[in-house]
Nucleic acid binder design. Structure first.
Lengths: 256, 256
DNA sequence: CGCTGGCATACGTCATACCTTATCGCTCGA
DNA sequence: TCGAGCGATAAGGTATGACGTATGCCAGCG
């Protein structure tokens, strides 16, 4: 192999971080707070020392702290300093915060809670869809279901089709607030639980049956049945996945 | 009156904004986006002109834009500019965003949707409480209910007691995620619907009855009944309040 | 026609100076 | 002795100016 053949690729490996400096700062500070290393009420170091610690200018540090404030993690006041807020104030829909919460949760408690919330919201939306006799909506759901059937067997595309189905239902429901919240949660859930695969041999089949039950209830305009079908589906499918009781691991940031 | 008696108080009326400069900038930009004056995909003016427009330095303007980015309202990319994101990305739990949404919603649609979400989450939490036989929790709820009874007649303290009751139940439920989301929503709802008072003569009585039904179901550890009682209560009480069909108005920022 | 390179634009980062606010301690007078 | 008041210190807030870096466009060359 000639020495000069592919020099650029080997010599200039495209510097890794590249991303904005603030990202690393925010990420680290969020972790410190979520993991409790910085406790509620505690004061962060002043901007000067902190910016020096991270090796960034005070400007960047300040923008990062402003981000933390938006996430509800801290409150900053002139003359006093920046202190950590109680968890009740945290914006748990925030991707970074939610990911940090999930990653630092050995017992899967957060994902359990997330499942309860998703089940509540999505079942309400399923009920709403069943209530509004929307031919377009129903057709769209049936198409999504068909796509799932066709991709059964291929884990990746099946999961993607699964997401499409849930998203479609939420959009059809017309409740933009519930849709917004549920989608934020769902997105994080997918990114985090991706690791315990639906390896159960009959997972595809069960998932399809549950989805079919939802569509069926909606087509019959049976509100209560639609709610129950969605509620059961989300809880049951989570149980299927979490059973292997192994602690979830790893994280991948950006996802959308 | 001597000319020099109270010069500072009269001549320097403590500059109006008082708050940080960025607050006004963020507030105005949020409004522009939420009201659709800045449409999805549209580019904001560059930082230079924009900072000049608001009469602040580029520093302040940038921190404000970073806040908007955290709220999910815009996405900023180096070399290109800052563009408005689709509503699906907005963080609707954010106080400023949610308030703006509510204020710019003539049909009360947002509050209707908010009610659905609250009903779903709080009924789930009520069910959870009924499921866990917690003597402490039950006692706490009964105390809250008693406080409500005692303050019946006084709108303000009654409402406050109402909030205490709902908060208590959410905290007892043990689902911190649901609690977090529901509280954020509830907070905004209270701040916004405060204006159409519970003027119905029998409002106190009805509210008390509904709350009593919730506590009763929980004391009997009847999960389904507790869920239904809470669900009905939130929907019914909202119907009571929204009936006067008058458009909600006014806004007050800080509230917590 | 297609690729390359320059240039304008817009955000990213840094350094510095100065203002405003909050705290705390110290002085001084009642 | 005690409390009001003042001033020093600390920490965040704002303003500038300069330079770095990513994008996009377009002319010019092969």
């Amino acid at each position: 192999m000639p020495a000069e053949s592919q020099p650029s690729a080997r010599l200039f490996p495209r510097r890794l971080p590249a991303g904005r400096l603030g990202v690393a700062v925010v990420s680290e500070l969020v972790d410190l707070i979520v993991t409790g290393q910085l406790k509620e009420g505690e004061l962060l170091p002043p901007e000067g020392p902190l910016s020096e610690h991270f090796g960034v200018s005070r400007t960047v540090l300040r923008e990062s702290v402003k981000r933390l404030e938006e996430k509800g993690l801290v409150v900053v006041s002139q003359g006093r300093g920046t202190q950590v807020r109680a968890p009740g104030y945290w914006n748990m829909l925030d991707p970074v915060v939610l990911s940090a919460l999930i990653d630092n949760d050995e017992t899967l408690g957060v994902l359990d809670e997330l499942t309860v919330v998703r089940a509540s919201l999505e079942s309400a939306m399923a009920g709403a869809v069943a209530g509004t006799r929307s031919a377009d909506g129903l057709r769209r759901l049936e198409n999504a279901l068909t796509t799932m059937r066709e991709s059964a067997g291929e884990t990746d595309s099946f999961r993607q089709a699964d997401v499409v189905f849930h998203y479609a239902l939420m959009e059809i429901s017309g409740n933009r607030l519930a849709e917004n919240i549920a989608k934020h949660l769902y997105k994080r859930a997918v990114d985090s639980s991706r690791y315990q695969g639906i390896d159960t041999p009959d997972a595809f089949d069960l998932t399809l049956k549950e989805h079919a039950a939802i569509v069926d209830a909606i087509s019959r305009q049976d509100v209560a049945a639609a709610q129950k079908a969605m509620h059961d589906h989300i809880h049951i499918s989570w149980e299927r996945r979490r059973l292997p009781d192994h602690a979830p691991r790893a994280r991948d940031q950006a996802s959308e």
